[in-house]
Simulated assay, not measured.
Amino acid sequence: MLKSFLRQYWLTGAATIAVVASAAYYVAIGEPDNFQNVKKSKNKSRNKLAGLVNEGNTCFINTTLQALASCPIFIWWIDSILEKPSSDAAGNCLETTSSLNLTMAVINNQHPTISADLFNTRQLIQSLEKHGWNLKSEEQDAHEFFNMLFTTIDEEINKKSKIVKGISIDDEQDTTTVCQSISSSPFRGNLASQLCCLTCGHKSVRYDAFECLSIPLPKLDMRNAFTMLNVQGLLKQFLAAETVGEVQCDNCSVTNGKIVFMKQLSLGKLPQCLCLHIQRCDWTNAGQLTKRQDLVKFSEELNVGNVVYTNRLSGNLKPVTYRLRAVVEHLGMADSGHFVTFRRNAVDGRAKWFYTSDTYIRTATLEEVLKSSPYMLFYERCA
Rank of each mutant, 00 (worst) to 15 (best):
L377G: 05
R280D: 00
L68K: 08
W353Y: 10
S253V: 12
G332F: 01
A28C: 05
Q248G: 09
K219P: 02
H338R: 08
N256T: 15
N101A: 13
I259Q: 11
L128R: 01
L2P: 08
R343A: 12
A69Q: 05
Y379T: 06
S45R: 12
I163G: 00
Q293H: 09
R188D: 12
W133N: 07
N316F: 09
S214D: 12
D358N: 12
A90E: 06
N230Q: 02
K40I: 14
L65D: 03
C71L: 11
D141W: 08
T227M: 08
Q8G: 05
K258P: 01
D358P: 01
L220T: 03
N158V: 00
C382D: 06
E31L: 12
Q140A: 09
P72V: 07
V164A: 05
P216M: 12
K136N: 13
A90H: 01
C197V: 06
N134M: 03
V164R: 02
S99F: 02
T151S: 14
A383Q: 10
S127Y: 00
Q237T: 13
R350I: 14
C275D: 00
N316T: 08
L270R: 03
T113W: 09
S22V: 05
L52C: 10
L377K: 02
H277Q: 14
R343E: 08
F146R: 06
S70G: 02
D348H: 14
I81L: 15
P216R: 03
S4D: 14
N158S: 08
K84W: 06
D117E: 13
V38F: 07
K203M: 10
S314D: 10
G51E: 05
S70V: 00
A225V: 14
L195I: 01
C71N: 11
V254W: 07
N54T: 08
R323V: 09
A67W: 00
V19I: 03
E367L: 07
V304G: 09
Y309H: 13
C179H: 01
N134I: 11
P112T: 07
G166A: 10
S185D: 06
F238Y: 14
H338M: 08
P72S: 01
N311E: 04
S253P: 00
L100I: 13
I61P: 03
N101P: 07
A24D: 10
L191D: 04
R350Q: 15
K48Y: 11
H202C: 07
A21L: 09
K44Y: 11
L235D: 06
S41D: 15
I182T: 02
S98A: 15
W133C: 06
V308C: 12
A142T: 03
L118R: 08
F342P: 06
T359C: 10
D141P: 12
G305K: 07
K203A: 11
D79C: 14
K136R: 15
I157D: 02
Q248W: 12
E380I: 06
N101L: 10
L302G: 06
V205N: 09
I61H: 01
V254A: 14
K3S: 12
R323F: 04
E301L: 00
D117L: 11
F226V: 04
N54H: 07
Q126E: 13
L135D: 07
L270F: 08
K219C: 10
R350P: 01
D171P: 01
L274C: 06
L198S: 07
I167D: 02
L289P: 02
A90I: 05
K263Y: 10
G189Q: 04
D221L: 10
D358W: 02
Y375Q: 12
G305W: 05
K3T: 14
